[in-house]
């Protein structure tokens, strides 16, 4: 069986590294794609089949919601979670309106497991 793919988008390399650590420890059947911002992410996922995306909200360039909107156009079934410490209610409601979940920073194994729960297969 092909490995499933998760996209990690965060402008902090430490944050990406941390997520990679969790995956390498607990979710070995996943491939990870890492991007530092929205444009990077969109270029990276072109033509790929994605299952999960963990996206930082506060990034240079487009924010996490804008990126999610663009990702969903190409990957309508993608399960997206915004990873964020604090978010304005307005932004949270907008995200929920397009079916995006939240992971509250700091991220850890349990939170990633919870995010994977809704996935098919």
């Amino acid at each position: 069986m092909d490995k499933r793919k998760a996209l990690i988008v965060d402008d902090s390399s430490l944050a990406r590294m941390m997520v990679r650590k969790f995956f390498s420890e607990s979710f070995k059947d996943w491939d990870l794609l890492e991007a530092k911002d929205g444009d990077d992410a969109l270029a990276l996922v072109e033509g790929q089949t994605l299952h999960l995306a963990l996206i930082d909200f506060n990034m240079p360039g487009m924010n996490g919601i804008d990126l999610s909107e663009k990702l969903l156009e190409k990957h309508p079934d993608l399960s997206i979670h915004l990873v964020t410490a604090n978010i304005q209610e307005r932004m949270q409601l907008r995200a929920e309106s397009i079916g995006i979940g939240f992971i509250k920073k700091p991220i850890n194994q349990e939170k990633i497991v919870a995010a994977m729960q809704g996935l098919k297969g």
Binding site: E89, R90, L93, S97, I98, G99
Partner: peptide
């Protein structure tokens, strides 16, 4: 108008639709 974000969010979830206001 801020209240409409809430409305759209609740209805989207309820109806299983994805909507950006």
């Amino acid at each position: 108008w801020d209240q409409y974000h809430r409305l759209v969010r609740d209805l989207s979830v309820e109806m299983g639709k994805k909507v950006m206001l």
